[in-house]
Design a protein around this nucleic acid. Structure first.
Lengths: 204, 204, 204, 204
DNA sequence: AATGAATGAGCCTTCATTCAT
DNA sequence: GATGAATGAAGGCTCATTCAT
């Protein structure tokens, strides 16, 4: 009897895992469309068409549009967090930590500006739509953790606020992204690196 | 004859002024609804209902939804700019400039968080909808000018970048607003002042 | 007492005439806009703007949009009828009647294609909207009278049906106009004259 | 592998056919409403209600209102062309061609006056709205082809213009329809036949 | 007499969501 | 599991008409 229960719950779990895998796979496809079109300007039909998914499938696997978007953003941000963490963990000593972090931020903003735009779009939504707040809080918590990791790595004085440091870094990151998106005042790759490097030198 | 021309043009101007006044009045009403609901979640019907205006009137005075929103944001931001400018112009010497600026920012963020939320919402829209870019560029230019004014007043070294200073200040301002809106980690009025004051001390 | 009645009715009539004159004047202005834009595609606001009239005035003098349009078409068609009648009355003998009629039709279609388009547009409306039928009937009666006048002038045999003759002539006239409007297969002025001349030679 | 490709393309084709069938079915329903109300006076809501279709469905199958109307008119006119062609192809010799053609025109105008009214309505629209011109040109081309077919069948002299013949025939056809619609001067079925028969005798 | 501000019903269209297959 | 046909509420916008001045 116990055995059967075990088997059953194992099967349920397997099924659940399979379903989660599928959800992740769909979300990854959907992400491609979302990055380009943005949250408010993308209908589920757009996502389905641009991702080779069927409209029904999106609703079969996801509760509603919010649910899908949350999964998509979640995937994206986890990648970003992983990249930053990897860059920071490879660094030894304050100078290297600052250099690696600046480099990682630069690469990310230059290569994937429209992906970051989506993050800022969702974070903005969360200010009006409470259903986005849990995921935004969670992801923003991860981002602050990265800043804390960098601070530790760089030997920042314990008086430095991670909250403040994150806020400033984010302000700069966002503005650079915006200027790239709107093609207003595009810094070269080297200039972006320099401005991050200098700022991190002061902040950490 | 000259008299008639003068009278005529006077009447045209009066009419035009009257129309502009009405536009401003409508925009102010509309602003109330927009502040609460946000751009994407506010239909013209919502605005009409919440403002006691008829749907047709909105289109009688404004080309389309964009046009109305742009007027609304414009009004709001001009007020903000005027307040900051007034605060800065009344200050003498570095310490006063910093104190006044910090105070003005604090008052504004504490008293009108949802108005600022709308600004961030529109700025976000502009990343996807080019029709918002001119107004966002213009207003953001005004904000940078304020920062520059503060820098001059505080006697900042000429090497300091107004672009960077604005970015960092905006990052902090935005995060504080977000935390107030989402009721996550609300700093007291005094704490907000202190964090602005400290930051300005470093930046300017 | 009788005198007073006479005076009163005279004043009423004078007033009424004045009003009719004004109506005619407005309708003539409005016609200019209508010719270009067509019935269904023209709002009263369009007419007001393009004719230098105020929106309120249109409704002050005319019951509704139908009423205005009816007046406009009426004016136009009376001009057309007058032109054709003049041309026919100046002609003596069968050959001249045919030549003058063909010439008059040619001039009208070449110079004022968009005016005729409006007539066909209204006649078309009348098939669905009964309020246009009286005026269309009346005007079409005038057109048939012209055909009859030409037939008399040309000494057509009494067996010839004016109804049929009008139908055929109108079919050709309309097709030529259509091809001019749609820029499909534009006959030269001389070709238009020839085809009318030949047809009239057969029909009358 | 080849098999799979075949199967796949077969399925795609079947699906496409099914969609086309549905479009045709919807268009036929819509036609019923359009015939009665006319183009400008028929909203998509009217069509949906009168046809038992949902509003969304109309847009699911057709790009926009134009697209739907074009399908409707297209269907109708193809039927008309098919009928005329069938009548003409069954006829041998000049007299039979004329008799069959006159009969077919008579039947069509008497039984389906309101369908023809719609054709004239759309043709009229095309004078103002260029988006209707391609379909109107195409269908009018078909009508001229029918006239040409009749001319060949009747052994008309090669000097006779199909363009002119079409114009005259259309003029008469339209006027008869108009008089039936407006209930002004309704010819009996036999009189309609006679007038067509006589005219064709002269024209062909 | 004349104006144009104001109204609100109605139009076309979009879209998340449901459901039969 | 997967599909896409079908729904209908809601959105931006137009326009004839009314009415206060």
């Amino acid at each position: 009897m116990n055995d059967m229960v075990t088997k059953l719950s194992a099967r349920v779990e397997r099924k659940s895992n399979k379903r989660d895998d599928k959800k992740k796979q769909i979300a990854e496809s959907a992400l491609e469309a979302l990055k380009v079109l943005g949250y408010a300007n993308t209908s589920l039909r757009d996502i389905a068409e641009n991702s080779g998914l069927s409209l029904g499938m999106l609703h079969y696997y996801f509760e509603d549009k919010s649910d899908l978007i949350i999964h998509c953003v979640s995937i994206y941000k986890k990648e970003f967090v992983a990249e930053m963490t990897a860059a920071l963990e490879m660094a030894e000593g304050r100078d290297e930590v600052i250099a690696h972090f600046a480099e990682a931020l630069t690469v990310s903003i230059v290569d994937r500006e429209s992906t970051h735009r989506l993050w800022y779009d969702i974070r903005n939504q969360a200010m009006f739509d409470v259903s986005f707040r849990p995921i935004v809080d969670e992801l923003e918590g991860n981002l602050i953790d990265i800043v804390a990791l960098a601070m530790r790595g760089a030997g920042s004085p314990p008086t430095t606020s991670r909250y403040l440091t994150y806020a400033l870094l984010d302000g700069l990151f966002r503005l650079i992204m915006q200027d790239r998106i709107t093609e207003k005042e595009i810094l070269t790759r080297d200039e972006v690196f320099k401005v991050f490097h200098d700022l991190l030198g002061q902040l950490l």
